[in-house]
Design a protein around this nucleic acid. Structure first.
Length: 262
DNA sequence: ATGTCAGTTCCAAACTGA
């Protein structure tokens, strides 16, 4: 089965590209981030063959999961802070996603806070949010349900994941505290699907600034990730970044990452 | 500081967020 993740930077603005991409690529499951509005085109996506669940808010954030098979929403909020109202988290179950009799697959769609600028409340929120996520990831590992976590994690894991480390040194996505938390997730047993299959290939990114011809000159960063629980490590068949949607008219600043599980 | 795009708002130039 094919599962993709894409920060669309407004579902409304990206629907023309998303529609064509779904028809061409035909992923079984799609995780979307940065919907940027209360409206969600569930009926239009249903007509394209996808069930969906979405968590939206006005103007900002917003996450959704699309699935060719029916999905069951488990949670629309990340545990650990009742005051947190951002639409950044969606946990669903998809029955038999890995084939008949395979049981439920847990799919978690994330839009981790950006955290810029460093030294502000926004950065503190990013760290606290990530710590809450790590606690939840610990609980998932203690259960038997195989789990895929995917989304815009807003972390550049290593120097290899950006065109030029020096130019990201002051950015929230590249701070030691942020990279350490991502490394902690890997240390707990979560597998970075893309990096596992491409262990020493630099220059492979999922995001490029809109300005200064960043895409054309490949000055980008790898911040959209898939993490696999141990039960799924042996099922990882492929994981690629699809640059095609970033080359189209009116693109998102992110492009999809597509993973194959067997 | 700059660059660009999307959403929002005293409806349209200026803001916020990324």
């Amino acid at each position: 089965m094919k599962i993709a993740s894409w920060n669309v930077n407004s579902i409304k603005a990206r629907m023309p590209i998303l529609r064509g991409w779904l028809e061409t690529v035909q992923p079984d499951v799609v995780l979307l981030q940065e919907l940027k509005g209360l409206e969600f085109p569930a009926e239009e996506l249903r007509a394209l063959g996808y069930h969906s669940a979405a968590v939206t808010q006005k103007s900002y954030n917003g996450v959704a999961v699309l699935s060719k098979q029916p999905l069951e929403v488990v949670s629309t909020t990340l545990a650990g802070d009742d005051e947190d109202s951002h639409a950044r988290f969606l946990e669903v179950l998809i029955e038999d996603a890995l084939g008949a009799g395979s049981g439920p697959l847990r799919v978690v769609c994330l839009y981790v806070p950006n955290g810029n600028p460093v030294g502000t409340e926004k950065f503190e929120y990013k760290l606290r949010w990530t710590d809450r996520l790590i606690e939840q990831m610990r609980l998932w590992l203690a259960e038997t349900t195989p789990t895929v976590i995917g989304g815009d994690m807003n972390v550049i894991p290593t120097d290899m994941d950006c065109h030029k480390p020096a130019s990201w040194a002051k950015d929230a996505l590249f701070q030691p505290e942020v990279k350490a938390r991502y490394a902690q997730m890997l240390g707990m047993g979560w597998m970075d699907a893309f990096r596992t299959l491409h262990p020493d290939q630099g220059g492979l990114f999922t995001y490029w600034d809109y300005f200064r011809n960043a895409f054309e000159t490949n000055r980008g960063i790898r911040i959209d990730h898939f993490l696999l629980s141990p039960a799924l490590h042996g099922r990882l068949v492929g994981c690629e970044i699809d640059r095609a949607p970033r080359m189209m008219e009116k693109p998102s600043d992110h492009t999809p990452i597509v993973m194959e599980l067997g």
